[in-house]
Write a protein that binds this DNA or RNA. Structure first.
Lengths: 215, 215
DNA sequence: GGGTGAACATGAAAAGTTCTCATATACTAG
DNA sequence: CTAGTATATGAGAACTTTTCATGTTCACCC
């Protein structure tokens, strides 16, 4: 009576040294990501240490390297997991609501984004929009592409415009929203309300100008 | 006949372990910052190494620690230098042009920002808006505050609105511009023209809505 | 339930970084 | 010319990242 349907995402290209196949190890990998997220929250990215991660996760350092090629890959995997969770939440919310106006889509997405900032450890420090160094850049581009493409598809069914125009506008909107919400959470741990409101205002204003008011 | 007027900025709080007093050492510190900038461009922040910086700058590692308390402080000093250069350029441009419409102020600022992205090594990777970790956060806030305050003063003489409203709007605009220009330079080394244009459009649109069209 | 090979776990130590410090040299004021 | 401070230096202490040989656990088969 359980939903055995594996929630496995194909995992585009494996940044992992080895894919955990047994359940215990999959769990361990999750623990390592959780530990990383917590530590990033507490100490910041720079102070993150493989030894610390391992200790916090309750595993040996070697176990970490069993799956991740290096420290960066851990953070990268964390951002990937954040992205997956985000997209899953967005999809769920949207299929639930049923698409009406893109206006509402924007609201939903921003709300979910906010929610994750507030509830997912480490999210406000590193999530899919971050570039910590060149190595992560390509991965980041991919992550953002996933979001943007997904949203573009969604909006394309509603707005009568060339898809490339939509993609462009959504790319811009995505970047703006990310920047402003990050600012909001830099100012206040729970997110500065005024800035959050302004973020919604700016994004909607921009999209309205580009998409037109009609749904 | 030379303008001896020292272009020294008071240097708010000293993040340096020791302030270079002799000219040779001041020069060396500059060399270290130059080396850091170049290396960040080439390898990314993560691959930055104190040994590498020293080697590139042609000094001993110890010399670096003579002035900087740790590696982060070097990057921090680099962002501070970038900020100084940026503000200096902005001030020069604006006093030259003479303030007309805030519209033109925005153009000037964005142009200078672009120019620096293209000509100042490392600028597109780390400049005043970046947060690499918690330690740098306060300094970053300061940096942004400097820009925002400075611009606010400037605009306050032109727009008849409560100063706090102006500061808020400028904070938002600053963040948006930064995010979009960073995106532009992530996409193309010389800055994606289309995105740059859109950045100007978004920022101006936002400020027009907040400040009103009138100069 | 015994055997086999792959997946996984582990921690000591190799390799690499950060940062210190005792020592040596350059500069500056008098 | 000289004392006193600023600076330069690089070996090495302290800490991190990553490897790897060794030992366990699991999954599957007979």
């Amino acid at each position: 009576m359980s939903d055995i349907q594996a929630a496995k995402v194909p995992a585009e290209a494996t940044p992992l040294r080895r894919q955990p196949v047994q359940q215990r190890s999959a769990k361990r990998v999750e623990q390592m990501l959780d530990a990383s997220a917590a530590l990033i929250d507490e100490l910041g990215y720079d102070a993150l240490t493989t030894t610390l991660i391992a200790k916090r996760a309750g595993v040996a350092v070697g176990s970490l390297y069993q799956f991740f090629p290096d420290k960066r890959a851990v953070v990268q995997a964390l951002t990937a997991r954040n992205l997956e969770r985000f997209m899953a939440a967005v999809n769920e919310r949207l299929t639930q609501l049923g698409p009406e106006h893109w206006w509402d889509v924007v609201d939903s997405i921003l709300d979910i984004y906010l929610e994750m900032h507030r509830t997912v450890p480490g999210f406000s420090k590193v999530h899919f929009g971050d570039i910590i160094d060149r190595q992560l850049l390509d991965e980041t581009r991919d992550n953002n592409a996933v979001i943007v493409d997904s949203l573009t598809d969604l909006v394309a069914t509603q707005v009568d415009r060339p898809v490339e125009d939509l993609r462009f506008a959504i790319t811009i909107a995505n970047e703006v929203a990310d920047a402003l919400l990050k600012l909001a959470f830099r100012r206040e741990p729970r997110g500065d309300e005024k800035i959050v409101a302004e973020a919604k205002y700016v994004v909607k204003g921009y999209l309205a100008a580009r998409f037109g008011e009609r749904s």
